[in-house]
Write a protein that binds this DNA or RNA. Structure first.
Lengths: 195, 195
DNA sequence: TTTATAAATTATCTTTTGTTAACGCCTTTA
DNA sequence: TAAAGGCGTTAACAAAAGATAATTTATAAA
């Protein structure tokens, strides 16, 4: 039923979890996979599931006034995808969550997860861990906008997400950095000519 | 000892807290005040206290390579100031936290708070509330950098922080928006001439 | 493999921002 | 009260970024 490989896969979720706690989680979680270009969560969705990405890559985007897709976030394997608008703000999703690669996930309904956590206190530690990781990531991104130039921001991004440039289109990365694809292209050239 | 006024003051901390829970918090918390320009937390500090701002205003800043102060965040009354580097990342503070106005606070050691929370489950709800509010604020700031122009970002800022322009120097606001004070001045002029 | 489509680069031009410095205004300090 | 310092605005110039379109390169479809 629950083999060791799956346990190892989920293990990066939180380091303090015992095998028993992981089994409790896994028992309640469902497996699923999304093909490239498939949506995990649609705009306007009230889908309440929390996804753990076993493998693959998801992008979070919305569509602006001009009808352009703007990518806000790239979420690779071993991270969590959730409808934050619903879970944190009690509103339907303002964003699309799309698989950029074939993506394998565990998922579990947030209310079920809440209940699980309340009955298994050890899971609370893990919940805190996930929340804190989200907070850390978000705060560091704010810092990068305030303290760094776009060029420095790009260099930090490729350092923080090694190999991401080979997996994701530049235009998505440009969006995440808050600049245009054309500008990113120029920045890359500037960096290249420095060396 | 604990009068109603103080309870009302702290009440905005979390809406689900009962009077009893608040009293538990207040009993463990200490009162303090900081004069304008005084530091709540110094760079390099391992101070472990969580401050609740009863009244006043705090700015979080650091000093860049060129020796310039860069303001990352402004924190007004009814919000929480804490050494996030220590609490979330177990490192000494990379930032200064300075009172911009005479500032009244409650504060409580984070470890003591942790212990309190573990012994008073209702407080856990509040803890979650504070964390989620930090996360929401941080994520919305990221969004504003990705989706908005500096001008739009400024307009949203003054909307989200009503009256802030009368309390804080423009150069701090410029930093928070990720632009220079000169650029902010031009943006303000541009907005003014539109109307 | 060829064709069609999309993405990245490059070019051109416009707009905005950064940088530095000067000026006037206001507040603080001596 | 006078002097000093800081702040916001403005100006002038340089650098970077946005917008748009053309070109090349890469990818996907037929």
């Amino acid at each position: 039923m629950v083999d060791l490989n799956r346990l190892k896969q989920i293990y990066k979720f939180g380091k303090e979890l015992s095998l028993k706690d992981i089994q409790v989680l896994l028992k309640a979680a469902k497996n699923s996979s999304f093909n490239k270009k498939e949506l995990l969560i649609n705009e306007g969705s009230k889908r309440n599931d929390v996804f753990y990405i076993k493998s693959g890559l998801v992008r979070c985007f919305n569509i602006n006034d001009k009808g352009e897709e703007i990518t806000l976030k790239l979420i690779p394997e071993h991270q969590v995808v959730a409808n934050v608008d619903l879970i944190l703000f009690s509103q339907s999703s303002r964003f699309f969550y799309e698989a950029l690669e074939n993506t394998e996930v565990f998922f579990i309904d947030y209310d079920v997860l809440q209940d699980l956590v309340s009955r298994h206190p050890k899971l609370e530690t893990n919940r805190k861990y996930v929340l804190q990781r989200l907070l850390k990531e978000s705060m560091e991104r704010v810092e990068s906008f305030v303290l760094l130039t776009p060029e420095e921001r790009y260099l930090r991004f490729v350092k923080d997400y090694p190999g991401i440039t080979n997996r994701v289109q530049d235009k998505y990365i440009a969006n995440v950095l808050g600049i245009t694809p054309v500008s990113l292209s120029r920045i890359r050239k500037r960096i290249a000519t420095k060396n």
